[in-house]
Nucleic acid binder design. Structure first.
Lengths: 117, 117
DNA sequence: TCGTAATATTGCAATATTACGATAATATAT
DNA sequence: ATATATTATCGTAATATTGCAATATTACGA
């Protein structure tokens, strides 16, 4: 049980704890797709036969550090598989996970539209 | 045409202009669902028969100002219809728009999974 | 007209996110 | 061993987002 006093109150932070986990989950998944770089990364990875690594930097035009950061955000949700091959790391979609996420979002969308006035 | 010099470069801002519009659109739509308060608002609105207005404040437990802000974010994407009835404003899903958005996201999801290695 | 209820807007505080350069870490090739 | 290529991490700068109090706005009712 978390409470605030007028002293300890912290502004500017998403109050996740007031929402049920099912709702927080949907928001977390959506956040992965809420930045164009991450959408572009997922699109590009899925389009390559052998999957790709650091061509994303050339392809997208953001710095290596930034791309790596975005890859980590996507990966934290379990949506990527990465295998090292020498110096190179080949990224690949975790399709099972991706479809899980898609299903969850769709289930929310469908419930929402079907219940509406 | 936007260019940067090493002087004028601005950090910390999403570089939308380097991405095709189709990708920016997906990211914009996803952003609506990327906060639990907005997910909860959409869920609640869809569950009420007559649609609802400021019960969201009681229901969700964020301040009136904050709820109003989130409603504006959702509304900016065209996902809400609001009709005034006296002092009260009844919110309702714009289902056509909602399904449009759902379709677009799904089309991205499907393309992504189907092409992957 | 005045008070009340409902919503929107403004201003502010604080954290979160985005982006990059520099550096570290790892593996290969010479 | 050294140099090079590749990716991850750290530190930092700057904007974006979240949340609330206070205020404005609008509509109704007495």
């Amino acid at each position: 049980m978390i409470t605030f006093t007028s002293q300890s109150y912290i502004m500017g932070v998403t109050k996740r704890f007031i929402f049920p986990e099912s709702i927080n989950q949907i928001a977390s998944f959506a956040k992965v797709f809420a930045h164009p770089a991450r959408v572009a990364i997922l699109k590009y990875i899925s389009e390559q036969e052998g999957c790709i690594c650091n061509d994303l930097v050339d392809e997208i035009g953001l710095s290596q550090a930034t791309i790596s950061q975005h890859l980590a955000v996507i990966g934290d949700t379990g949506l990527l598989k990465g295998t090292f091959e020498g110096k190179k790391k080949y990224y690949c979609l975790n399709i099972e996970r991706f479809q899980e996420v898609q299903l969850l979002l769709n289930s929310f969308f469908n419930k929402t539209t079907s219940n509406c006035c």
